[in-house]
Design a protein around this nucleic acid. Structure first.
Lengths: 114, 114
DNA sequence: TACTTTTATCGTCGATTTACGATTGCAAAT
DNA sequence: ATTTGCAATCGTAAATCGACGATAAAAGTA
């Protein structure tokens, strides 16, 4: 249906893109995994585990916070970072909805494009 | 570049980041959804559905192809794009593995960070 | 107060992304 | 062979990203 161009993308598309973008860097994937394993929690410990400088890690944490995947609470002189369960619930829903629309490789070749 | 702390990131982390990055733009999310709905299939039709120029859409398709989520087969003068089921299977596994590590909001507050 | 520790922010740099119009290439039709 | 139509690529410009060192801010300690 050759309709007119859409002014914007849907809210779900933009939210999903935002979360996916936050996970679109190996360092940020590594950070959330480290936080999930509870092996580390404080920014300084993350720096020790990652091949990045302190300022770069802090920047990645800022982006993960902006995406709602991580939250940090001040604990004295340091900051304790942990995963935001609510944010991950949203991410689960968004990715789940998208993947539900996508093809399953039931048929081996299954291309059958057009 | 001058990184000398630990090893780099795992293969899974890099693969996941690559797929997430490909989905990290609303236009690319919209494209795969349009392809999934089978409403459109050809580049030109995608252009009509999106608020982007032909060259920009082609560029997004190229990135989705590079990420293994889309494949295009030449069909006469036009190109028929379709989702790559194998690529989506990989994406499912990568995201599934990551989400399996992430917290579920079972416990309401559950922060209990440190 | 002064000092230390920890993290956030600033400023900068190069690389990449995003977008576009214009051009090229390719396959079918004339 | 020429024309037509669609898609990929080129070239370019603005914006963003990713990284770093340096510096500031905040909190505890001496």
């Amino acid at each position: 249906m050759a309709s007119h161009k859409r002014e914007h993308f849907t809210a779900a598309e933009q939210q999903l893109a935002a979360v996916a973008k936050a996970l679109g860097h190996p360092a940020r994937v590594a950070i959330v995994r480290l936080l999930a394993q509870r092996r580390v929690c404080v920014c300084g410990e993350l720096v020790l585990e990652l091949p990045l400088s302190q300022s770069t890690v802090s920047q990645h944490l800022k982006e993960l916070k902006a995406a709602g995947l991580v939250q940090g609470e001040v604990d004295g002189p340091r900051v304790c970072y942990c995963l935001d369960a609510a944010g991950w619930a949203v991410a689960r829903r968004l990715f789940g909805d998208l993947l539900a629309e996508m093809p399953v490789a039931a048929a081996p070749d299954a291309a059958g494009c057009c």
